[in-house]
Structure formats: C-alpha cells, structure tokens
C-alpha cells in the first residue's frame, strides 16, 4: 500500500480529515491507553499527515479502548477514535490482528463477562 493509498483509505474508512489536526496534543494527554503506547495519538495523527506507512504497524492502534475521550475533547472536531479504527480495520481486513482466542488465559476466561470477549475480538481480531 502506497502512502497515498493509505491516506485515502483512512479518510474513506474514518470519514475524517487528518489534515485538520493542529498537533495540540490534547488527545494524547487524555488517552486511556497512553501508558502502554509506542506513539502518542498526536503522533499517529502527524505520521498520517506525513503519509508514513509505518503508522499501520504501530502498537498504539491496538491499545485504544475506543472510550472516545479524544473524540470528545479534540478542539478541531476530529473523531480520532474513528481514525484509530480505520488503521485497525486496514490491518484486520488483511488478516493482521493481535488477539487470538488461545491468548486469553483460562483463569481469566472463566471469570470475564461475555461482552468483553465479543467487543475485544471485534476490535482486535481479524
């Protein structure tokens, strides 16, 4: 996938314009998953603006909890959670995922509410 194709696909899947981002960093300061991310959400937006394809391989898109705090706070009105989902979706539709059923520890599986499995696998599994 060329960088132009990637940018076009992300715009199409997310319905968002990444060039609106002014790099204020409020999304990063607010993000639930920030402690375990490699790139901050602000950096994900910047890499996207610059058309860097490696953004498809970053860890942060998989640490997103879709809690929509970034979306609620973005002063430029970008639905950042949709951008994160677009980057996940491009991967998932190629079969690139990060969560397999066998990865879930049996002791957790015995306790966890069903909805965690359906939502988790919908977001993180191809």
């Amino acid at each position: 996938m060329t960088s132009e194709e990637m940018t076009r696909k992300v715009k199409e899947l997310s319905g968002q314009n990444p060039y609106l981002c002014m790099q204020c960093g409020l999304c990063s300061a607010s993000c639930t998953g920030i402690g375990v991310m490699d790139l901050l959400p602000r950096q994900v937006m910047r890499f996207l603006q610059l058309g860097k394809e490696e953004i498809l391989k970053n860890r942060s898109i998989w640490m997103c909890t879709t809690c929509l705090i970034c979306t609620a706070r973005c002063p430029r009105g970008i639905d950042i959670a949709r951008v994160m989902e677009a980057l996940r979706t491009i991967n998932l539709r190629k079969g690139n995922d990060i969560l397999a059923p066998e990865d879930v520890p049996a002791e957790l599986l015995a306790e966890i509410p069903q909805m965690a499995l359906t939502s988790g696998f919908r977001k993180l599994s191809a």
């Binding site: 639930t32 998953g33 375990v36 969560l99």
Partner: peptide, 19 residues
C-alpha cells in the same frame, strides 16, 4: 467517565490495572 480499560483486559493487563 474515565475509561477502565474495557476489553483491553484481554490484551494488556498493565493498561487495565493502571486505569
């Protein structure tokens, strides 16, 4: 309304434990 880490409990213990 801070997120608890949600379904990431399946994927990243540290994330959820921290939140």
């Amino acid at each position: 309304t801070k997120c608890c880490g949600s379904y990431q409990v399946l994927n990243n213990y540290d994330l959820v434990a921290g939140r």
